Amino acid sequence: MSGTGDKRRAAVLGSPIAHSLSPVLHRAAYRELGLGDWTYDRFDVDEEALPAFLAGLGDEWAGLSLTMPLKRAVIPLIDEVSETAGSVEAVNTVVFTDDGRRLGDNTDIPGMVAALRERGIEQVESAAILGAGATASSALAALARICTGEVVAYVRGDARAAEMRQWGERLGVEVRTEDWADAARALTAPLVVSTTPAGATDALAASLPERPATLFDVLYDPWPTELAARWSAYGGAVVGGLDLLLHQAVLQVERMTGRSPAPLDAMRKAGEHALASR
């Protein structure tokens, strides 16, 4: 799929989608790789509109990036789902093969692992997750690859607590759940992964220990979050949402274009510039 002279298309789908940085990252990669005939756009598509959108795609399409609320909705509409994507029932990448098949994958999980590895985090003895939901399940899947011990998830409500324990059983991770009211306890963990919406962890910033370890905050806009800013000020290591977006996009570019390695540095510079301009 990497023919330089072929006009190929890719895009990110979701709703809402106007905020997405994916076009910035993918276009930067195309420029660096010399893929002048490749384009990458964004389309506001919800679950109801997804089947018709997929049905209308022509042979020029190489792949799609998917964000909320489409990561689960797309599964019945594609031909094959990778083991990684199936493990969390979430597809964020669809690659179209030359014979017309649609292959679903999840680059969020290996993207998280790669973002941590870039900061020197290869393995941890334990970890904490703030929040529940789709991103938290991907975080659990990533921790299944690097965490040798217990993961404590701080959530609101019994239903979400039960769901996180079920994900842990499915992914082979030892998960203990605690009430969100006690989330300040999470801050002493060797690795804290925050999967919450903007503002949800602001109150925790005042409870940081003197020497925090590593925070992985999946948000990138607004950035830094109050927790991430305080964490950095206390000398802790911080991995941000742009790191995650970047590393999962690198994998998407490689799978859609067939070209490897994707230009990580050029993509990072483009993403940082776009965020600074907002």
Rank of each mutant, 00 (worst) to 15 (best):
A11D: 07
V12C: 10
I17G: 09
P23R: 05
L25Y: 12
H26F: 08
A29F: 07
L33Q: 12
L33E: 05
D37A: 15
W38I: 02
T39P: 05
E48V: 00
A49Q: 14
A49P: 04
L57N: 03
W61F: 04
A62D: 04
L64S: 11
L64P: 08
T67E: 01
E83P: 01
A85D: 05
N92T: 00
T93F: 10
L103P: 02
G104A: 14
N106V: 10
T107I: 02
G111Y: 06
I121Q: 10
V124C: 07
V124Q: 06
R145I: 03
C147N: 12
V152R: 15
Y154P: 01
R156E: 11
G157K: 11
R160G: 11
M164D: 00
R165A: 14
R165G: 02
W167A: 01
W167N: 06
E169F: 00
E169D: 12
E169R: 13
V173H: 03
E178G: 07
W180F: 06
D182H: 11
R185C: 08
A186K: 04
L187N: 09
L187G: 06
A189W: 00
S194A: 15
S194Q: 14
T196I: 06
A200C: 12
D217N: 14
T225W: 03
L227Q: 10
S232R: 15
A237T: 15
L246V: 05
H247K: 12
A249S: 15
L251T: 05
Q252P: 01
G258K: 12
R259I: 12
A262F: 11
A262E: 06
A262T: 04
L264A: 07
A266F: 02
G271R: 01
E272V: 14
L275M: 09
